[in-house]
Design a protein around this nucleic acid. Structure first.
Lengths: 111, 111
DNA sequence: AAATAATACCTAGTCTATCTATGTATAATA
DNA sequence: TATTATACATAGATAGACTAGGTATTATTT
């Protein structure tokens, strides 16, 4: 059933935009940071993250830029775009609406 | 992107178990009741609901029983099973965990 | 009386996001 | 030297929500 996997759908984009919206980040860092901030709950797989980043870039919500470290190592830093910032605001709002609706059903308040 | 659609994944089973756990219900009634209780947020499509009910029945979380009204109308009432009740408790807990994790990212508390 | 809407169930096929598994390459550690 | 961690990528499998279609009865509207 893998409920965790399913619950993630629809929240992934919000999570990524949220992080990248605070500061430019690269893929591997995002995986680690999501796990750290969620106290171990979110453990994104690479097969989930990278396609998601490409998808967000394709629709113009983020923009990737390769950077070369002094060591020669390559990293692709993603920045949020203006369109991405607007989308983030909307997604936060959508998340709130969903949360409220869920709680009306899952934790019904006695009339 | 249809975020609402995606957010639903993983929560659908919990919502259905929650309703059926309170009293036996039939499919059409569940659609209306979910919409009513969520103040219009959840508008389940039949193509979502019926396969979901069949799935839950197949794994033994609910059990369907045809009933004939005095008018001759047929309805299939679903009852929750003991296994379903246990699953509901677990799903509620999983929803809480997910909620907490999401809020740690979406609404970060300043250190 | 006829047409429409609401009730009530069902499913085949489409879409899409996540995951598995795999690949490449470098740096750090055991 | 071998393994782990870092860092990116993708092809194919899986599975759930939706579209669009179907059947049938009852209630309402025209």
């Amino acid at each position: 059933m893998a409920q965790r996997r399913e619950l993630m759908k629809g929240s992934t984009d919000s999570l990524l935009l949220c992080l990248i919206g605070q500061q430019p980040m690269y893929g591997y860092q995002i995986i680690k940071e999501l796990e750290r901030r969620s106290q171990g709950y979110f453990k994104f797989k690479e097969g989930t993250l990278y396609p998601a980043l490409h998808r967000l870039e394709r629709v113009g919500l983020i923009r990737g830029e390769w950077q070369t470290l002094p060591s020669g190592q390559q990293r692709k830093y993603y920045h949020i775009t203006n369109k991405g910032l607007l989308s983030l605001v909307e997604k936060r709002s959508q998340w709130q609406d969903f949360l409220v609706a869920m709680n009306l059903i899952i934790q019904p308040v006695p009339e």
